[in-house]
Structures are given as structure tokens and as C-alpha cells.
């Protein structure tokens, strides 16, 4: 019943290695794009008028409330049915590849979580510091980029580790739209070898190690930055 024959094939280990790269790419890309989008959302929330704020709030409510799985299905299976999208830039860039769809969906999902986090950071900056900047005659944009944003960034850096972990774990779900990430690649081979369990065990172990490594790096980098009791994040 249990045999580990699959472990002796090089195809399996290539799939693991390749999957590692894909998972890393998914994570890094969607963190970067998510952070930018999240930053925009947070600024909308912070500086925008009531309409703009409401827009940001609705975005965050929707993309934090809908399961990642449904979002992936929606973009991968649902959107291609919209015929007028066909041939558009969005279609060519995103919808033609599972990987790019995954990056896109993870990004819009991340943006909602990171947006809330960044907003929290912006709010943590004492108003007095911003007033002081205004008092020395800095313009609004200058205050944002030179004072507000850097200070906010510093206060949220400690959370970035747990956010990254959340993204690594969430990215495993993109395997359902045939992305060959660390989860998807090896488990597809498991089906071929009629052994679904072994790939799961191996890959699971690797995820655990990756997350421990991220924790380690966060602790090393964040010794001075981190706040006590940073919460566990879930981006699903």
C-alpha cells in the first residue's frame, strides 16, 4: 500500500525543485504588487474623501471576505467567459496563463490584507510629528514620502514576516488552477504514480522548513523592529 517508489524518480525531485521556484516567484511577486496596491488602498483610506474611502473599504471587505479558492475559480474559469475581454491587454497578460492568473489573484487578495496593515502603520505615526513637518513648511506630498510613509513602514516591518508566511501558505491553493508550484507540481506526479500521500508528506515538510526559515530571518532582522505579540496572519 505505502511505497515510496516515487521518491526514487528524478522527475519527482525536479518537480519539487521547480515548484520551489514557482512558489518563491508567486510569493515575491504578489508581495511586491500587493504591497504597492495595498499602499494605494491605505492612502485612499487615509487621505481620500468619503467616496474614495468608501471605495477602499469595499475593496478590502470584498477581497478579505471571499475565499481565495473562489477568487481563483472566478478569474480562471469565470472571467474567460466574458467575450468582450478577449483580445484585451488584460486578457493577454493575465488570463492566458495559470501562473499569471495566480499572481494576479494573490496580489489583489494580498493588497486587501496589506492595505489594512499599512493603514494601521500610518495611523500609528503620532500626529505631532506630521504637524511638526508641516510647521517647517513641507508640502503634503513631501510630508507623506519623507515623514509619514517611512515612519509607518518602520512600524509595520515587524509584521512582514508573518504576512509573507501567510502568502507562502496561501499560494499552495493556486495549485487548483493547475499552477505547478511546490504543492501543485509534485502532487500531480503523485496522481501518476497512484501515490497521493508521499508527495504531500515531502512537500508539507518543505513548507514547514520554509516557514521556520522565514521566522528565523524575521527574528534576526526584526530584533530591533518587532513588537511583542505580532499576530499570525492568514491570507485566504
Amino acid at each position: 500500500m505505502l511505497n515510496f517508489a516515487i521518491l526514487e524518480t528524478s522527475a519527482f525531485w525536479w518537480a519539487v525543485l521547480n515548484g520551489l521556484g514557482v512558489t518563491a516567484a508567486l510569493t515575491v511577486l504578489s508581495m511586491i504588487f500587493g504591497f504597492i496596491t495595498g499602499g494605494i488602498l491605505a492612502s485612499m483610506n487615509f487621505y481620500g474623501g468619503p467616496g474614495v474611502r468608501m471605495g477602499a473599504k469595499i475593496y478590502i471587505f470584498v477581497f478579505r471576505g471571499v475565499p481565495l479558492l473562489i477568487l481563483l475559480y472566478l478569474f480562471y474559469y469565470g472571467l474567460p467567459r466574458v467575450t468582450w475581454l478577449r483580445g484585451s491587454y488584460f486578457w493577454d497578460l493575465i488570463l492566458t496563463s495559470p501562473f499569471r492568473t495566480a499572481v494576479f489573484v494573490l496580489t489583489i487578495n494580498n493588497a486587501a490584507y496589506l492595505g489594512e496593515m499599512i493603514r494601521g502603520g500610518l495611523r500609528m505615526v503620532p500626529a505631532g510629528l506630521l504637524e511638526a513637518a508641516a510647521a517647517v513648511g513641507m508640502t503634503k506630498t513631501r510630508i507623506f514620502f519623507r515623514v509619514h510613509a517611512p515612519l509607518a513602514l518602520r512600524s509595520i516591518l515587524g509584521n512582514l514576516g508573518s504576512e509573507t508566511i501567510a502568502v507562502v501558505k496561501a499560494s499552495a491553493i493556486t495549485s487548483v488552477i493547475t499552477v505547478r508550484d511546490l504543492m501543485g507540481g509534485p502532487t500531480v506526479l503523485g496522481k501518476v504514480y497512484l501515490d497521493p500521500l508521499t508527495p504531500l508528506l515531502v512537500v508539507g515538510l518543505i513548507y514547514v522548513v520554509i516557514v521556520q526559515l522565514i521566522d528565523l530571518v524575521t527574528r534576526m532582522v526584526g530584533r530591533r523592529l518587532s513588537h511583542p505579540g505580532t499576530v499570525q496572519a492568514h491570507h485566504v
Partner: peptide, 20 residues
């Protein structure tokens, strides 16, 4: 362990594992 394991893997592991 569970801080690192993606939920999708745990669900599959329990399902296939318990079957076996």
C-alpha cells in the same frame, strides 16, 4: 508544524492518510 503546513495539504493528508 501547523504554522508551516498549508491548510490544503493538511486536508489532503488527513483525507488520503486516513483512507490508507
Amino acid at each position: 508544524l501547523f504554522r508551516g503546513l498549508p491548510e490544503i495539504i493538511v486536508i489532503f493528508l488527513i483525507f488520503y492518510g486516513s483512507n490508507i
